[in-house]
Simulated scan of single mutants.
Amino acid sequence: MRAEVVLFDGFDPLDVIAPYEVLAGAAMVADEGVDVELVSAEGPREVPSGIKGVALRATARLDPRRADLVVVPGALGSLPEPDAEDPAEDSIPVLLGRTLETELPALLKEALDREGVTVATVCGGSLVLAMAGLIEGRPATTHRMGLDLLEATGVRMLDVRVVDDGDLVTASSVTSGLDLGLYLLERELGPRVAIAVEKLIAHERRGTVWRGTGVASTVGV
């Protein structure tokens, strides 16, 4: 199984490292693991994060033809001022919006269109997809501060930790990248591998993963 974790200017480092380490950890506890690589829409380059002085190196270009799993992080920047007419240049919405000016939306569309590829997001990663018009009408989650924006793009917004909609799996806020990675291991490689990695990193998944199955809730979840 091959996973490609996307980097873009202003990415949140924890959104990247948490699922990366969990997915890579499968190879430490089982004969079958996950080949994980950091990628960007532009190809190999040093990619600055949203923390000054912290960058990670993308070693390849995002390639949906090779990937089984594509993970999209959110951004880390200043919080938007409620009364400001124009958001700050380093604000999270601006950083996420800049991805629309790159090749990333087209590559993510190719990934979603390609059979057998799962696109997963952490925090504001789902907003990248939503603002690009790629997940309209689909259930998804993001950080609580971005739920209104997610809904405004026509996405079926859910205030839960992880949402599984088949080839689209979204996770809510920063530390949920750990839960996302563990859930994907359970889904793709089985519970024994996921439990072994849980023990390895001393973290147990939180909450119930939302899936559109079973008896409908009367409270709209």
Rank of each mutant, 00 (worst) to 15 (best):
G50P: 02
G10T: 09
L147C: 14
T170M: 11
G181M: 11
F8L: 08
E115S: 09
V6C: 07
L100E: 05
A60W: 01
G220L: 09
R65D: 15
G97W: 07
L180C: 10
C123Y: 00
L185Y: 00
T118M: 07
A75S: 10
T141Q: 03
L38Q: 08
K52Y: 13
S217R: 15
R61L: 04
V219F: 13
G190H: 08
E85A: 14
T118L: 03
P82Y: 00
E101I: 01
G77R: 02
D179R: 07
E186I: 07
G97D: 00
F8A: 06
D164L: 00
T121Q: 05
V6G: 13
E101C: 02
R206T: 10
P48Q: 13
I92W: 12
E204Y: 15
G116L: 11
Y20N: 07
A3K: 08
M28V: 13
R144H: 06
G50L: 02
G133P: 01
T59C: 06
R138H: 05
R98I: 05
V39C: 09
E103P: 00
V119P: 00
D165H: 06
M157E: 00
V39Q: 01
E204G: 13
L150P: 04
F11K: 00
R206H: 07
H203P: 07
V34R: 03
A196T: 01
R66I: 09
V174T: 12
T213K: 06
S49K: 04
